[in-house]
Amino acid sequence: MSLDDLTEDVEQRYADIEAEQAVSLDRETRNELALLEAALDPEDTDELVRRAIHLLFQTTVDSGKLDFQLRSTYDVTYDEYLSGMTFEEMTGADQYPTMDDERRYQF
């Protein structure tokens, strides 16, 4: 897969998220959410969910797990996704033809 595949998948899933708003929670998650709601007293529960997503995203980026998953699936990193270019495209490494090692030193 490639950077274009990742961009397409993100756009598709963004549209899917807009279509589905409801989230089902298990008992443990409801209990934790209720405790956080009581302690932090947000305006609504959605605010806590937004904070949780931001925290999970930041932790995943900081730990390198996001880059690992993106590299495994799409062969790009988060920085490459943000810039819209692969590292090879940024450095110009993809502009040069590959060297033929068999004939490299023949005159």
Rank of each mutant, 00 (worst) to 15 (best):
D5P: 11
E89C: 01
I17E: 01
L33H: 05
S72P: 07
E102L: 06
L56P: 00
D44F: 02
Y96K: 11
A15M: 10
R13Q: 14
Q69G: 06
L35A: 11
E32P: 01
L55T: 14
E20Y: 11
E89Q: 12
Y105S: 05
T98P: 04
E11M: 10
D67M: 00
L35H: 10
R51F: 09
S63R: 07
T45V: 12
D75H: 13
M90S: 07
D16E: 13
D100N: 13
L3T: 04
G84A: 04
H54N: 12
Q106V: 12
M1N: 11
H54C: 02
R30L: 13
R50I: 14
T7A: 07
R13D: 07
R50H: 04
D44L: 01
L40P: 01
E47N: 06
Q58A: 12
R104P: 03
A19F: 02
L25G: 06
P42T: 10
A52Q: 02
Q95S: 09
T86N: 08
A22I: 08
Y14S: 06
F107K: 14
M90D: 06
T60K: 03
Q12I: 15
E18M: 08
F87G: 00
H54E: 10
F107A: 15
L6E: 11
S24V: 15
E47K: 04
R50M: 09
T60Y: 01
L35T: 14
D4I: 05
T91G: 05
T98M: 05
A52H: 05
Y96E: 15
D101K: 05
F87N: 00
T73W: 05
T29Y: 12
A19M: 09
Y74A: 09
G92D: 11
D9S: 04
L66H: 08
V76L: 03
T60V: 11
D100F: 04
V49I: 06
T29M: 13
D101E: 14
E11V: 03
D44P: 06
D44T: 06
M85L: 10
H54L: 04
E28G: 09
D9P: 02
R30F: 13
